[in-house]
Amino acid sequence: MALDEPLLVADDVGKRYGTQVGCEQVSFELWPGEVLAIVGESGSGKTTLLNCLSAQLEPSAGTIRYRTRHEGLRDIFAMSEAERRLLMRTDWGFVHQNPSDGLRMAVSAGANIGERLMAVGARHYGDIRETALDWMGRVEIDQGRVDHRPETFSGGMRQRLQIARNLVTGPRLVFMDEPTGGLDVSVQARLLDLIGGLVGDLGLSAVVVTHDLAVARLLSHRMMVMRRGRVVETGLTDQVLDDPQHEYSQLLVASILQS
């Protein structure tokens, strides 16, 4: 049965920039419906790792395999570029920290959501627009703004639009890079709640990079703590946060302001 196989398997993944280590010896399995948080401070290698996992950066060591819909587990860097790019815009999503990196700022919200549909051959304007409106509702953006450009949206709205744009093709795996970074605290809570709800309802798997442990606690089932390119601790999210074992995890947890 399909659910008895992992969706993404990283095996001894490493990335070096010359002699500089981006990340090394990272291995894990991500299962369907699981949300994995990668935490660590700036420079810990978490973004390098995310870029490798999401096929944007070829690792210098190890393999990353993804369970494709029809052909089982496949090494994503052994695929042809065409296959890989198709995967990235249909079965995967990528939510950037800065929404303008993931959106086309000069085209309307509706076109931003519709782009992936058109990329896989949708050619009925009315249907594309209906789907876009539906997704605007799901990410709580006023449907009256479907023809407005994201330039006129607030940061929180842009981020929600970026999420809709990614989810419209029904991906199974979504990568998120600091999805709530740079947003007001009140906006963050709403966004996290929305992401959590969507991930749960759609049964998505996700890899979320964040330096914010509260985000990790709210969104993820499992967590990897990274430091200097290596994973220093891994486990259930609540376990790592409530009973951290590694010196560095303890430091991270101890650094949270108590409210």
């Binding site: 309307s108 519709g114 990329a119 050619r123």
Partner: peptide
Amino acid sequence: RKMHALSEYGLMHVKLYEDIAT
């Protein structure tokens, strides 16, 4: 160039979509 090489032409329809929307 990559988009041409891989026949990834969804973007062209984005432009036409924008026309109709506007």
